[in-house]
Write a protein that binds this DNA or RNA. Structure first.
Lengths: 343, 343
DNA sequence: AAATTACGTTAAATCGTTTTAACGATCCCG
DNA sequence: CGGGATCGTTAAAACGATTTAACGTAATTT
C-alpha cells in the first residue's frame, strides 16, 4: 500500500516477480507469453505478484532475445515529396493512419518515417521488423537499402522491380478512368499536364493518355511541368498554352498541385469551370477539395490499401505466408463540381 | 567480394568488427558513438571494417544497455475520436506528420498510436521514451497511465491537470475569434452547436459564447448535440430549431462534423450560405474544406504546435531542460465562402 | 630523475528477457 | 513392477551492445 517514492528505484524485473511468486524467472516468462503451459494456480500467484510489484516488461531486453522489435515502419521517400508538396504528405498520412490501426490490432506499432534530408542516418536509428514503402521511385533510396538488408518490405504503389511484394496500384487504370470521365462529360480538347521526371506514374499516365486520345481520333497535347515547380509551374505552362491561342474544353492534371495551378490559370483567363473547361485530378485530398469548384478526382481507397499492405507484411513477418503480390482495390470516381455543374 | 549467400548467416556483431579491425569491442563502440576519444587511425580501421562486414548495430541490444528506445509515441485517445470522426484523425495526423519530422531531425523515431479499442494492451507492447498526447480528456486513459508510470509526456491541448508540460491551446481565444468574426460579418442571431460531453473544450466554448453574447446584448442559444450523433445529430437538431420558427443569421459549430450537419440543414430549408446564414467552425480540415461553400475556420498552426511539443519533449528526455509549459501559437482566421461571399 | 597527468585501449561486468536442456514427479500401460 | 510418456518447473546459457575500472605508455610537470 505504501507508495515507494524513492528518488531512484531499481526497475522491477522478471526476477523480482519470480521471487515474490516463489517460482523461477523462466516460469514467469512462460506465464506472460503463454508459450508453455503453466499450472493454473502458479499463474495466479504470478499475476498477483506482477500487479503487486507493478511489473512492466523491458521491451528492449525482450526484443534483444527474440530478435523482434514488434514494430513496422512506413516510408515515403524524399525527392518528389517536397516536389509534389502537401499532396504527397496527405497521401502518406492517410495511408499511415490506416496502417497504424491495422498494425496495432496485432500488437505491432507503426513508426512513421516521413521524407527527410538524410534517409540513411535515420534508418540506422529506427528499430523495425519490416516496412511499408509508399510509392517508391524506380531507384528509391529507402527501398534499395531495405532490400539489400533483407528487411521484409511491402510496397504500396507500382513495384519498382519485377517480383516484389506489393499492393499494386495500376496507373493505367487510373488514367483511363479519368480520361474516360472527361470524355463522357463532352470534353474533346484535353491537354494533359504531367510531371517531367521519369517516375513510372508519369510515364504510364502519358502513354495511356496518348493511346486513348489516338483511339478516339482526338489530338493529344502533353504539357510537361517539372515537379519542383509544382503549382506555379503548371499555372504558367497553362497560361502560355492559352495565350498561344490553343483552345481546350478539359484539363487532366494528375498531380493535384498542378491541377490547382491549372485552375488558377483558367480563372485568370476568365474561363469557367466546368462550363467552359472540365478539370480532373487523381488524388482526392486537401488540395482537390479546396478548389472552387472542388475537383473531380478518384477515391483510391487508401485505407483498404494500407490495411492490405499491413496484414500482408505482418503475415510475412510471422511466417504465416510467403511474400504476396496483391492488387489494389479498384478506385472509384468522385465526381465534383469541376466536371459536372452542381446545384 | 564473394556474396556469402548462406541460408542462415550469423548476425554481424560489434565483436566481429573488433576482430577485423584488430581492436576491442569497447573501442568499436566508442568509435561509433563518439562518446570517448578514439585515435584517428584506429577509427579509420574500424570504419573500414564496418563497411566491409556490413555491420549494422542491434538496436535492441543498445537500447537494453542504454535504457533508451530512441522513440517517442504520439497518442490520441479513443472515446471522442470515434465520436468526432474523421476530423479527429485528420487533426492527429497533421500533428503527427510534423512531429515525425521534428523527431527524426534528432534521430528519434515517432510511433503513431491512433485511437484503438484496448489502449492498455498496446501500451505494453510499444517501446518509447516519452509521449505526446493530443487533446486528452479530463480523465484520459492514456494520459493517466503514462503519468503513473512516470513517462515524460507533453500534452498538446489544454492540460487536464494544473501543472503538466503542455503546448497549451486556449479554447477561449479560439471561441472569441470565431464569434467575433461572425459578429463582424453582421450576424446577430447565432446559435452555438456544441458537443454534449463534459470535455473542456465544450465547456469553455460554451461559457465564452454565452459571455460574449451577453456582452453584446444578443440572445444566446446553445444547441447541445451528443458527440456520438455527430453530423446527423447536428443536422436534426438544427432542422428542429428552424422548423420551430427560430430565425438565425449565423451558426457557430466548433466541431466540424456538426458544422457539416448544420450546412445540410440550412440547405434543406433553402437558406443560402453566406447570404442568409453565416457558418463557422474551428478546425480547418477536410470536412471544412469539402463543404460548398467551404467553411470559414481557424488555422490552428498544428505544425508549429507539433514542433514545439516535440522539441520540448526531446529536450526534457535529454535532460537539457525541465518540463515546460508553452503557449500554442495564435491561431489565424481562415475566411472562406461560408461567411464572406466569394468571387 | 622522479612524480604526475593525459591518452587510448581493453577485459569484464552488466542490462532483463527468452529459450534450452534437463529434471523429478506422476501417471499409464503392458 | 518396470519402462516410457506427460507435465510443470528450473538453472543456466544465450542475445549484442555499452560502460566501468584498470592498464600501459607517452608526455608533462616538479
Amino acid at each position: 500500500m505504501n507508495k515507494q517514492i524513492e528518488a531512484t528505484r531499481r526497475r522491477v524485473t522478471v526476477k523480482d516477480v519470480a521471487r515474490v511468486a516463489g517460482v523461477s524467472a523462466g516460469t514467469v516468462s512462460n506465464a506472460i507469453s503463454g508459450k508453455r503451459k503453466v499450472d493454473h494456480e502458479t499463474r495466479a500467484r504470478i499475476d498477483k505478484a506482477i500487479k503487486e510489484l507493478g511489473y512492466v516488461p523491458n521491451l528492449a531486453a525482450r526484443g534483444m532475445r527474440t530478435g523482434r522489435a514488434n514494430t513496422i515502419a512506413i516510408f515515403s521517400s524524399m525527392p518528389t515529396a517536397v516536389a509534389a508538396g502537401s499532396a504527397r504528405l496527405g497521401f502518406l498520412m492517410e495511408v499511415a493512419a490506416s496502417a497504424a490501426v491495422a498494425a496495432l490490432e496485432r500488437n505491432v506499432a507503426l513508426v512513421l518515417v516521413p521524407p527527410i534530408e538524410h534517409p540513411e542516418t535515420a534508418l540506422g536509428t529506427i528499430p523495425f521488423d519490416g516496412a511499408i514503402v509508399v510509392e517508391p521511385e524506380v531507384d528509391d533510396p529507402y527501398w534499395k537499402v531495405l532490400r539489400d538488408r533483407g528487411v521484409p518490405v511491402v510496397i504500396i504503389g507500382p513495384p519498382p522491380e519485377a517480383p516484389a511484394p506489393a499492393v499494386r496500384v495500376d496507373h493505367a487504370t487510373i488514367a483511363t478512368m479519368l480520361i474516360g470521365h472527361l470524355l463522357d462529360c463532352g470534353a474533346r480538347e484535353i491537354p494533359l499536364i504531367v510531371g517531367r521526371s521519369q517516375r513510372q506514374s508519369n510515364r504510364v499516365f502519358r502513354e495511356t493518355y496518348e493511346a486513348r486520345m489516338a483511339a478516339e481520333g482526338l489530338p493529344a497535347r502533353v504539357i510537361e511541368v517539372s515537379e519542383a515547380e509544382g503549382e506555379l509551374g503548371a499555372e504558367a505552362a497553362l497560361l502560355a498554352e492559352l495565350d498561344a491561342g490553343r483552345s481546350m474544353d478539359g484539363v487532366l492534371a494528375p498531380i493535384d498541385s498542378m491541377a490547382a495551378g491549372a485552375m488558377a490559370a483558367l480563372h485568370a483567363r476568365g474561363l469557367r469551370v466546368p462550363q467552359d473547361v472540365r478539370v480532373a485530378t487523381r488524388y482526392d485530398g486537401f488540395r482537390a477539395r479546396s478548389q472552387t469548384p472542388a475537383l473531380t478526382a478518384l477515391n483510391l481507397r487508401l485505407d483498404e490499401m494500407a490495411q492490405l499492405a499491413t496484414t500482408a507484411l505482418l503475415d510475412q513477418l510471422e511466417g504465416m505466408s510467403e511474400p504476396v503480390y496483391l492488387d489494389a482495390p479498384a478506385p472509384e470516381l468522385v465526381v465534383r463540381g469541376s466536371t459536372v455543374p452542381r446545384d
